[in-house]
Design a protein around this nucleic acid. Sequence first.
DNA 1: ACGGATCGTCAGCCCGACTGACCATCAGTT
DNA 2: AACTGATGGTCAGTCGGGCTGACGATCCGT
Lengths: 154, 154
Amino acid sequence: MAKHDNADGGSGNAAAELLGTRLGYLLKHAQLRLAEHIGPALAPFGLDARELAVLAVLAGDRPLSQLEAAQRLGIDRTTMVALLDALEGKEFVQRRRSEHDRRRNTVELTEHGHRTRAAAEQAREAAEREFLAPLDRTATAQLVHALRTLTRTP
Amino acid sequence: MAKHDNADGGSGNAAAELLGTRLGYLLKHAQLRLAEHIGPALAPFGLDARELAVLAVLAGDRPLSQLEAAQRLGIDRTTMVALLDALEGKEFVQRRRSEHDRRRNTVELTEHGHRTRAAAEQAREAAEREFLAPLDRTATAQLVHALRTLTRTP
DNA sequence: ACGGATCGTCAGCCCGACTGACCATCAGTT
DNA sequence: AACTGATGGTCAGTCGGGCTGACGATCCGT
């Protein structure tokens, strides 16, 4: 969280006028600003947002294969490999050859992974709340609802 | 628009349940879906969204330097170089050494650039409207307002 | 027992965006 | 005028995220 981004901070916002009407710009920068909240919030846990999302998806009762996990996140299975390498290196997850289909790795959270995930999730929620603070309850609900509607592939 | 992204389309949306509550996910995917509308809409003009934004920023009455243009878009000046290389190659803009400060390039739209920008801007707006179609007027206004509030660095 | 599909892995590549160095130029100082 | 420090444009290098393509191991239907 330092190299990419830039999320304003510069220039006397002549931009805002022109770009503030462009949905793409608004969405992108909302995301950037949110990332600025969440990144630091997760850093103490040794996680970034993507990794936490992986943990979240793996936290269900049923252990998943790498492919299943990838699909739930909408990422490629080859991307999942590296993600899990990192998470396994930090002892948050554990790969294990599936008994029933020995092509598959079933992936499970470790004890440490479970605890960290729970704590990190709270930190993420707090960061989100902080980010959303300028909006009242209603506006927040409407925002989420609108975004959900728009992302539901029609 | 084919290689990157993936924006769902796969998996029986077990994701939606888990991730639909995560603001980061919603923002990211809203953006992806919007890009899917806008990309093809701008393709006929030989532009992508970033390039159109550059044209928009340069379309003001006063010609800007590369640095000024970059700052208004919140991008790096080194990034602007390549962007302008492309736009100049397509004859949409023209660089010219500033008379008053010969370190600067002032950048201006060509005639062709102006016409293309106007047309492309309409196409972009149409694409945005299409993307926003699932929301009624009020919801759209609220969404834009909320995003604007959140992106205003407080 | 085979041939085709599936899963995990790895190498290679693309894209966007940044950093660092370089050169030309400007502006203020001496 | 000459020096010095800052500024603007350029380029090479690099990084992060994510993909494609190929490969080996396995599975499965015939």
